[in-house]
Design a protein around this nucleic acid. Structure first.
Lengths: 137, 137, 137, 137
DNA sequence: GTGGTCTAGACCACC
DNA sequence: GTGGTCTAGACCACG
């Protein structure tokens, strides 16, 4: 699990960490129960302050993605968190609009966008355990 | 050109303005050469400080989306900014991966994501020149 | 005497006009006693407000570059204005620093800058009546 | 890095700051990666509003000269912005013509202009890495 | 009326 | 301590 952080990015560093970990979980690159690096090791590896990594872990734990076991380490939760479905839906729709607009600004047409999305799906799912269909609940 | 701002949103107000304007340009709802509201008028309309709107306009100008003519107003640029096509493509692909991951985290399947994207396209394209008729629902 | 104005330029339009006229005088492209276009004609030609051209002419007259003769028109003065030599010198030196810095930022070296300056001199002086050496006074 | 601002100058304060910083970068007095003063400290030092300094920093960042890292500070970029070389050349040549015209208006001759340019170079290069020794006079 | 600049504060998030 | 955002004014220059 390699992370890439960019100190100049407008997204805070702890958010960059959170995003990459949740994406890895979403896609199956990080599996349920898998152990994460300690926040101290990770901070050394990324050359950032330990508190910054800890903040990311704390927030991820508060959101239900990971859990810490005193003395043993930090692990990916078995049960992925379920947020408010309505709110969730709104955020996804907004993300879709943003993504589309960005693509349109680049001069792409709708069919091309779909193609890119399909490629991204293939790339993300590659190497990951074949996802099981989940209820949209 | 109606804007909606949400002071509670984590996205800064001036960014919300920028996003909506660039999306409107991307989609053709704002046409080349079209005049924007003065930053004072818009600030009154949105009930926010004039400087906040001005900051949005300033950044959009720095990015090449709009241009101002002292004493006359602010206008949509005729030549939208063009980045390096390769770099452009990379950013879009990265955005696609982020979008997909977010959707998967919410428990959606690929086919559902495509459906959401199609809806977003319809919504964005509504009101734009070459639009397909649909109820604004 | 063709003028080029750019409404999007950060330099005010009336200043753009002033600059081009004074440069033309400096270089001999506009000769002493020569008649300028009326401010109304020029404003039509440039597609700008007559008041804007008039402001440029007024300022140029106040500075001593041109003079208007009621009912006859506007003419280039025979005696070029002499500003405070010290202040003048300071401004030139500041302009030299700015020009040099700009060139250095572009990656040029000093000798290349001098070469460009020589070319510019040739280009400016070409077609103009050979300038007579003036006392620096 | 000492800055001098003149509130009476027609050039806005934030532009004066920008000019001096870009000149320092151009000439090597500010090196890649070097940390700038915080905009608050600098504003105190210059006895101006913090927002004024911040505006200068923001514009310099938009132009690619410096970059900020939240919580850490503002730094000179390692890769200075590179424009289209041809376009670049055009701008420099135009600047050369402007500079020359201004000097000629002041009654200077070409050889005098070159002398002033040489002095400006010495002054700019003073304090920079590969400088030639001279009295700061 | 339009944008351009500046002030003197304030609160928040990040490291 | 650092930058990020926002406010509510003010004065000026331009067209």
């Amino acid at each position: 699990m390699e992370l890439i952080i960019n100190p100049a990015d407008e997204l805070p560093i702890y958010r960059q960490i959170m995003r990459q970990i949740t994406e890895a979980i979403a896609v199956g690159r990080l599996k349920s129960g898998e152990k994460l690096k300690s926040h101290r090791d990770l901070s050394e590896e990324l050359v950032i302050a330990p508190l910054t990594v800890k903040k990311a872990y704390d927030e991820l734990e508060a959101l239900g993605f990971i859990e810490t076991q005193r003395g043993r380490g930090t692990f990916v939760c078995t049960a992925p968190p379920r947020l408010d479905p309505v709110e969730q839906r709104d955020k996804i729709q907004q993300a879709a609009r943003s993504f589309l607009s960005q693509a349109y600004l680049a001069g792409l047409r709708y069919t091309e966008v779909v193609k890119i999305l399909k490629d991204a799906d293939r790339e993300l799912t590659a190497g990951a355990p074949s996802r099981k269909e989940k209820e949209t609940a």
